[in-house]
Each structure stands twice: as structure tokens, then as C-alpha cells.
Simulated scan of single mutants.
Amino acid sequence: MKKLLYSFLILSSATLFAQKKLAVAENMIGTEDLFKSAGSRIQVLKVYNSAASLPANLKKYSSVFTNGVTVYKSSKSIGFDKMALSQLNSQIDIPADNSVFIDGYEFTDSSTKIFTAIMAKTEKKDYNGKPTLFIYTTK
């Protein structure tokens, strides 16, 4: 029984660390790794440590950023392609206003924009009887 429990804990922690931490820049969703790769063109503006401390423009993501979020600011164009979740849905024949999941977090506002470079893997799955796009930041 202990071996089974230890195996589960190791697998769970490996899965947690494999996901990249989501972050925000220019009011668009990305990952901390993506923004760090932009080098001096982007810098940390503010770190919010809880959902309660999020500013008004990020409150709509309070269910996603329950442990807070890092907000980045670009000093120049960071040069990553951007796209609204509604556009991504439409590209794979999903109604534009359906929710999208990114690393297990549900984004209900399909007008949310993301940096497409975070999409390592995508899947179209059924969720609550509706076709839904699932985006993963790692393969």
C-alpha cells in the first residue's frame, strides 16, 4: 500500500512541475518561461500572490490565478503571435463562445487572447456535452 501511495505522490508532483506557470503580459495569457525567453524586451511589472489581490482587469481570471500571477510589461514589441480563444475555437470547428482549458484551467471568456507560442499540444474533447479545446503548455 505504501508503494502505491508513494508512486502516486511522485507521479502527481512530476505532473505539477511539468506544467508551466501561466502569466500575463499586455493583458494576454502566456507562461513565465515564454516571457523570460524574451529577455530584456519584457520585465516583471508586479507579482500578485493571491486571487484576492488581483487588480480589477484581472479579476475575471480569479478562478484561474488562485495562487496569484506574475504580470509582465514589455518595453518593446515582444514579437510573439497572439490570438483570441474564440479564433482558436473557430479554427477547429468549435463554437467561438465555448470555454477553453489551458493546463486544466477553464477560461470562460473566449475573447481572452493568448500568445500562441504557449501551445505545445492541443486537443478537442467533449466537456459537459460540448466540444471543447484543451491547450497544454507542455507535450
Results as ranks from 00 to 15, higher is better:
40 S>P: 01
118 I>F: 05
102 I>F: 08
81 D>H: 13
44 V>D: 07
90 S>W: 00
78 I>A: 04
46 K>N: 11
32 E>D: 12
22 L>H: 05
6 Y>K: 11
99 S>Q: 10
18 A>N: 08
115 F>K: 05
100 V>E: 04
64 V>I: 14
7 S>K: 06
37 S>N: 09
58 L>G: 06
70 T>I: 13
127 Y>P: 06
107 F>N: 10
42 I>E: 10
88 L>M: 14
124 K>P: 02
42 I>T: 14
117 A>D: 15
128 N>R: 14
44 V>G: 11
6 Y>W: 00
49 N>T: 09
11 L>T: 09
12 S>K: 05
102 I>M: 10
85 L>M: 11
59 K>Q: 15
85 L>W: 06
76 K>P: 03
76 K>E: 14
101 F>P: 07
138 T>N: 14
125 K>R: 15
117 A>Q: 13
44 V>I: 15
60 K>N: 08
62 S>P: 00
86 S>V: 01
127 Y>D: 08
39 G>L: 09
114 I>L: 08
27 N>Q: 02
61 Y>S: 00
131 P>R: 10
23 A>E: 02
40 S>G: 00
78 I>S: 03
121 K>R: 15
6 Y>E: 14
39 G>V: 03
130 K>Q: 12
69 V>D: 06
97 D>N: 10
22 L>V: 04
89 N>K: 12
129 G>T: 06
128 N>Q: 13
6 Y>N: 14
99 S>E: 13
132 T>V: 03
136 Y>F: 14
57 N>A: 02
22 L>C: 05
103 D>L: 11
129 G>K: 09
74 S>M: 13
31 T>N: 05
129 G>D: 04
70 T>P: 01
125 K>N: 14
123 E>G: 01
1 M>P: 13
56 A>K: 12
31 T>I: 06
43 Q>P: 01
29 I>D: 08
42 I>S: 15
127 Y>I: 10
107 F>A: 12
92 I>W: 00
8 F>A: 14
88 L>A: 15
31 T>G: 07
58 L>V: 02
98 N>Q: 11
22 L>T: 04
46 K>A: 06
33 D>E: 15
21 K>M: 07
25 A>E: 10
108 T>L: 04
39 G>P: 08
17 F>I: 14
119 M>C: 12
137 T>Q: 04
22 L>Y: 05
23 A>V: 08
85 L>I: 13
4 L>A: 12
56 A>E: 12
82 K>H: 07
131 P>M: 10
111 S>Y: 01
19 Q>P: 00
35 F>H: 03
36 K>R: 13
43 Q>C: 05
81 D>S: 14
